[in-house]
Design a protein around this nucleic acid. Sequence first.
DNA 1: GAGTGGTCTAGACCACAAC
DNA 2: TTGTGGTCTAGACCACTCC
Lengths: 250, 250
Amino acid sequence: MATRSDAVQVDVRLDRTSPVPLYHQLSQAIEAAIDNGALRPGDRLENELSLTERLGLARPTARQAIQELVRKGLLVRRRGLGTQVVRPAIHRDARLTSLYSDLASGGREPDTRLLTHDTTTPSAAGIDLGDVMAPDTPLHLLRRLRWADGEPLAIMTNYVPARFELDDAALAGRSLYDLLREQGAQIAIAHQTIGARLADAEEAGLLEQPRPLACVTAELIVYDDAGALVEVGRHLYRADRYTVQTSLVV
Amino acid sequence: MATRSDAVQVDVRLDRTSPVPLYHQLSQAIEAAIDNGALRPGDRLENELSLTERLGLARPTARQAIQELVRKGLLVRRRGLGTQVVRPAIHRDARLTSLYSDLASGGREPDTRLLTHDTTTPSAAGIDLGDVMAPDTPLHLLRRLRWADGEPLAIMTNYVPARFELDDAALAGRSLYDLLREQGAQIAIAHQTIGARLADAEEAGLLEQPRPLACVTAELIVYDDAGALVEVGRHLYRADRYTVQTSLVV
DNA sequence: GAGTGGTCTAGACCACAAC
DNA sequence: TTGTGGTCTAGACCACTCC
């Protein structure tokens, strides 16, 4: 009966008056237990039925919490076996800027210098946006240099449809995404392609690095919730300061 | 009543005798509709209630199908507004090898040549595996060269715990993951860090490319379902043949 | 046979957006 | 007010793994 003896019960306190969904409160509690060592790699999590009885939840709610952590790569489930912790804890490396930084940290960018601001078109810029935008649609072409910790970190090239108004003065003080949001862009989804290439002489100069210099490239295509293009970004990062982390569940 | 007039009904045929879950049959049908142009970017999807009535499904089942496509970056949902298509279709670029290739295509690797096979330890190899493995645990050290389409594509360095038996003859003919699976490794999850660096002279020679050469680096840490280490891979890819794609929902 | 996760149903109430 | 997605309940039956 009940759970097999080696399963670990997580200390969970749910607040049903909170606006935070119950499944998210639960997944955060489990994640915290993994973080602080109460649950260690290889440990078995209490099974769903026991968990739901103990916490007074319906099973789909508990499943949703666990599923969130499976997708994040912290847990693994096997039918007939149970749910286990696979990852020790999240390594937060100060050197690393995550995928998110370009969008999520938009609120207060460390320091961004506007290099140039011109007008172009997708065909002139060599961008193929087939279904989303005609090749002769006018675009802003921005080149910016991002600094962090007193060092140049990345050269960011942004293409933004001309229906947005981008004022150089505003660009200096505010993040690009703030400006776009203000003008009604409901940013919904970004597709990113990560690769590598050598920096040319000008780029290495801007990044204040000797050549030859290997850089991480990221091409970002950002759409709003109507599927309209908000931005194409082509960014060049110093490889010693930027990596991308992903998890893959088999 | 019913749906707002501009919503698109997808042609779906569900097979309740199939072992494929209903939610997955539905999500595949919607994805196919996006692929073949029946649903275009900006189109609104039929709402959940209408969809569930029409198909005779419960709402959570339809939600699960739609959620799958939201995570894949094809759809966006907004409360009070509806569900919309954001992405034209998935660009399948032959040049691109996805994140998955290292694990999923393990069945039939195009061609992999074993360069060296030695023994080392985490501390000697400069790998820190803190909780998962003591620094003096013996490891296989493999260096392999992967070919595709008659060209060298990647240099793969693998560290595998000595508890696995890796026979050079078997390694030549079989994929590494096949061998590990055969010996009981239930591969569960991989964490990957993508970056870039310059290839050294030997590496450029193996890849048959002139220097300086910028390469994509991928460090893979693979765990089994008990949280035990199965493999650490440090791979160096030709940047002109390898990129990584991810999506980011805001 | 017992324990476990995987799928599915049939509802309920709420929060947000548009009219 | 109406349509929409977001959350949650309380069950059901099935498939897989281990004993």
